[in-house]
Amino acid sequence: MSPSAVSLTTIFVIVAIGVAIGFLAGAHRKMDLEQWTVGGRGFGTLLMFLLMAGEVYTTFAFLGASGWAYSRGGPTLYIMAYLTLAYVVSFFILPQIWEVGRKYEMQTQSDFFSTRYGNKYLAGFVCVVGIASFIPYLQLQIAGVGIIVSIASFDGIGRTPAMAISVVLLVAFVFASGVRAVAWVSVLKDVLMVFAAVSIGIGIPYMYFGGIGPMFTALAHSRPAHLTMPGATTNLGHTWYISTVLLTSLGFYMWPHAFGAAFTAKSGHLASQRRRHAPLHHHSSLYLLCRLHCGFGRARLAQWRPLALNHRPQKLPALVPGGDRRSRCPDRNSARRHFHPDRCDPIR
């Protein structure tokens, strides 16, 4: 079997299993609105955990985070801080949201604002803001899926068909099974992501540098500025770090889906208990870390073009979309020249 046949088969099998899990998650349950949006408020610790982890760890962990580590370096560390601190925030707000949600039978973020402040226009406004914020977020995720599938299939499946197929399948199983599908499909996704992140994030440093330590030592020697802030940028320094981490961690639960996940828990106690362990149990932090390694590793690798991933250096920027977009602002352009000596043509 040729490599592309292997990868196409793998993609097909994974997608088929994922879709099957999605549909099965809601089977044999009477699907009323409460079951669909908040899982009948019956999620135990495990499902809650999977839902929370699943909604946060997306294509960004694979593309955006390592792309940033590669193109910008040090500032990428903000991701590790803001996620952990968002969970700290959740400890204080989610049990309360859950309690009020159960008492007044809320299912969405807008329900909360409508009941709490007694103003349906405020609730409508919250809803509109939520949806408007979701459009670029979803666009990014779907574009990410397109990139991953087209690269993983050796261009066997183009970006546009990949995006179209994935959206149709996703909408179909979410329509059928609601929030249960989201939680259960993340089981498959998380297992695969941990496996991929560990194998790439640890494997690549070992293959090319003999370990994670030697990789960072090599990077610290050749590009020490890349490992601290502002890294390869001119403006992402400590002020930026503090304001960004505060904004993204304190504002994290403004996301309608993150907020709404609180309504799925069986008990408020559980919500806080789950939160208590969240940062530690966050396997996801582990794979983010691995991805960062990988990104930093690429920053080093890019200097030795013959060694670049898969010996297909032209694919390198495609693997790190953060890298793709650098060209739009001047400091990113310098980063691009920095790491791609022969790719300094301005990109429109």
């Binding site: 040090g74 969970y87 994670i212 940062p279 530690l280």
Partner: peptide
């Protein structure tokens, strides 16, 4: 550099664990 990680990265990894301890205490 600690455990092969630059100090800033090591610090954040350590605090992912220590934050959990703080939240356990808060709980």
């Amino acid at each position: 550099m600690i455990f092969g990680l630059p100090f800033n990265l090591f610090w954040l990894v350590a605090w992912i664990v220590l934050s959990s301890l703080c939240m356990w205490a808060a709980y």
